[in-house]
Simulated assay, not measured.
Amino acid sequence: MWEEKNQTFTRDFILLGLLHPSRYGMLFLMLILVIFMVAIMGNTVLILLIRLDTRLHTPMYFLLSHLSFMDILHISNIVPKMASNFISGQQSITFAGCGFQIFLSLLFSGAECLLLAAMSYDRYVAICHPLRYPSLMNHQISVLMAAGCWLVGTINSTIHTTYALHLPFCGTRGIDHFFCEIPAMLKLSCVDTSHYERGVYVSAMFFLLIPFSIILASYGQILCTVLHIKSVETQKKAFSTCSSHLTVVVMYYGPFIFTYVRPKSYHTPGQDKILAIFYTILTPMLNPIIYSLRNKDVLCALKKVLEKALMYRN
């Protein structure tokens, strides 16, 4: 019985974390928890608005609701464990818990990368081929796109999680990160992981560079089309819609590309932690703010819901 407990203990990992047990660490934790609550509330409100307002029942907002749902799950996979470890003073995470965290993180991040590319295609069709929009981008196609993003993300996550957890880990099991992430875990392996790293590069090409190239190509065509539009008001509306999506793309893809495309030897714990903050904590909070504050349709829907709530209360 003791041997089983000892083996179970040695299979646990230690998350060295992002925060130090000090007054500043507690203040930083409070800031992260505020960001976490804003992200949960903002994305939840956005999903509810899209469901309640019939004017938002379009393919673009359907895909946006999936983006918000992914953001809720992604940040919930990271922050609660990080906060509980800091408050309790225990930095351990079980082997199964670490595997579960890797699986969910890869699932949501991979699916979101593909979803952002799908959203750029939606904007491309809406602006460059408006007359063909009902046939090229209808509800059935948007459902297939969203389902494909979830399915491909799940398959990729399952493969990488299975392989990573089967690597032998020798000596210290301290992961110099605030959550279980594959680049940080590869440093703990006592075998040559160069073959697996090449697989990570191939996966990064598929989930990062190829969708990012599609997004750039889509917006290149959109820019050419918008510049030929004579109506200034129409140009402003098109640029406003596209700039929100482009802002999210740059914030999300940039840190991911820098993290997963670099060789393992070029990774430093400090850089990886700072970059991970962007796509695990900051982006889920900023997405609903960017899409709501710069979107008249969403603001009108919010105003309509608030007015109904006030009338019902009175």
Rank of each mutant, 00 (worst) to 15 (best):
I289G: 01
S22K: 08
K296D: 09
M26E: 09
F278N: 15
I215G: 00
H160Y: 13
R23M: 11
D71P: 00
Q91G: 15
V143G: 00
V232P: 05
H245L: 15
I75L: 02
T10F: 12
H129N: 12
N314E: 13
S120E: 01
P134F: 00
L275M: 13
F69P: 01
L310Y: 02
F9P: 01
I182R: 04
T280F: 04
I159H: 07
H267T: 12
Y266P: 00
F258D: 11
L106I: 11
E3L: 13
F206N: 08
T172H: 01
T193Q: 05
C149N: 07
H66G: 03
I40H: 08
T54I: 07
L19N: 10
S240V: 05
L64G: 03
V125R: 03
S65F: 03
L286S: 08
S189P: 05
Y124E: 10
A83N: 08
L67R: 07
Y312F: 08
T158R: 10
H139N: 12
L282M: 10
I87N: 10
I289H: 00
G153F: 04
P21S: 06
T283D: 03
I281K: 01
C170G: 08
S120R: 07
L64I: 14
I182Q: 10
A146I: 01
F206Y: 15
I93V: 15
R173Y: 00
Y312T: 15
V248C: 10
Y266K: 14
T241F: 03
T158Q: 08
L104W: 02
T259V: 15
L144R: 13
A301I: 01
G220A: 09
D53S: 11
H228V: 07
L310R: 06
L116S: 06
S109A: 13
D71L: 10
T54Y: 02
T44Q: 11
H195C: 05
F207K: 10
I222S: 04
I289W: 00
T241A: 14
S243N: 07
I141G: 03
N156W: 05
T259N: 05
M251Y: 00
E112W: 02
L67D: 04
A147Y: 02
F258S: 13
A83Q: 02
I175C: 07
R132A: 13
D12V: 03
H228K: 13
I141Q: 05
I155E: 02
S157N: 04
L188D: 01
Q271C: 13
L293W: 00
L167V: 01
I32L: 13
Q91R: 14
G171V: 09
A217L: 14
Y163I: 15
C190M: 08
Q221T: 09
G199V: 07
L107Q: 12
S244Q: 11
L186P: 00
R11C: 02
I72E: 04
L299F: 00
G99W: 04
V298M: 07
K237H: 09
F9S: 12
F278A: 12
A39G: 11
A83I: 11
N6L: 13
